[in-house]
């Protein structure tokens, strides 16, 4: 079965980026959620980010 179908059949396990309140709301509902302590990659330099992406 495709992986998007699994999303509906398996328990949710979520990684959150950005607003932490959304991660807390998931935890409140008993869902496994890990919040990433995110910083802009390449110190927010979009040009450098493009170069890094090409290297990936």
């Amino acid at each position: 079965m495709p992986k998007n179908f699994d999303l509906l059949q398996q328990p949710l396990s979520v990684v959150t980026f950005g607003l932490e309140s959304f991660s807390l709301a998931l935890k409140e509902q008993g869902i496994e959620a890990v919040h990433v302590d995110w910083r802009p990659p390449a110190d927010g330099d979009q040009r450098l980010l493009g170069i890094l992406e090409n290297l990936r």
């Binding site: 328990p11 396990s13 990684v15 959150t16 980026f17 998931l26 990433v36 302590d37 995110w38």
Partner: peptide, 17 residues
Amino acid sequence: KSLDSAKNGKTNLIFCS
């Protein structure tokens, strides 16, 4: 600090804001 260290074998969704 990153998705690589946050995810595990069961991770089936990222929520991005």
